[in-house]
Amino acid sequence: MKTNPDAPVIALRGLKKRYGIGDAEHTVLDGVDLVIEKGEFIAIMGPSGCGKTTLLNILGLLDRADDGDYFLADRSVESLSARRHANIRSEQIGFVFQNFNLVPRLNVIENVALPLTYKGIRKTKRLQLASKMLQTFHLSEREYYMPWQLSGGQTQRVAIARALVNSPSIVLADEPTGNLDSKASHVIMEELSDIHKRGNTIIMVTHNPSLTTYASRVITMLDGKIDSDTKTLQPTVKVDTTKKRLDTHAAEAPKEKTLRSRRPAKRKTIKKGASK
C-alpha cells in the first residue's frame, strides 16, 4: 500500500450507519467527520448508545458504513474486498476489547501469537515474538497459563500484548478498562500511554472521564454525531459539555477513583450490556 507520510492516518467524511429497516430504522452514526493524525491518543466519550462502539468497529474494518467516506492512510476502504479488509486488520490494526476476548482454548502465549498466524509467520518465530511482547508487559511468568487462570488486569495486559504483537500502526481499544477496578485501570492506561509514546496511534472508547487525562485528544459523541473535540474547541468548553452530558449517564464515574470497590465497575457493565 502506498502511504503518503503527510496524509492523516484516518479521515472520515459524513460517515453514516443505520440499523434496522423501515419504521424500526435507527441511525447510529449520523454524519461523522473526523481526521486523525499519526501518533494521536484519542479518547472517545459519550453516553451509551451514542455510536462509539459502532464507530470503532467501522474504523477497525469489522463493520461497513452505509454512507460517507473512510480513508485509511489516504486510501478509501469502501471499494476494498473483504479479503483486503482482513489483510489490513492483520497488518495495521490492533484490537483491545472490553471483555478481553482471549481464545479460551489457547494459553497466554498462543493467544498473543494468534495475530501473527494470519501474517504467515512460522510457529517458532511466532512464539519468540509473542514471548518478547509478553516480556514488555511483565507477563513472562504467565506465558503458559490459561486465560481463566489470570486476573482481570493480567488478562487485559495479555489482550493488549496481542493487539500489539503484529506492530500495528493503529490500536483500537473499546473500553479497555471497563471490566477492571480503578487500580488495574490505571496500570492499563499507563501501558497504553507507553505505547502511544512509542509512536502508535491509539483510539480508545471509554466511559470514565478520569482516564481522558492520558489522552492527547478527547472526542465526545452524542446521538451519532461528534459533539465536541478538544482539537477544534476550547478546552474549557470541553470540560463543561462533557460534565453536562455525562451527568445523566455516568454520574458516579468520577467518584470511582476514590472508591476501591468493584461496585461502580459492575454497574457500568450492566449499563454497557443494556446499550447492546
Binding site: 482482513a86 489483510n87 486488520r89 476476548n101 481464545v103 494470519y118
Partner: peptide
C-alpha cells in the same frame, strides 16, 4: 462463534 469473531478481528480472512 466467539472465537471466530476474535480470529476475524485479529486479521483472519474468510478463507482462513
Amino acid at each position: 462463534t466467539r472465537e471466530i469473531g476474535i480470529r476475524k478481528a485479529l486479521g483472519a480472512s474468510n478463507g482462513h
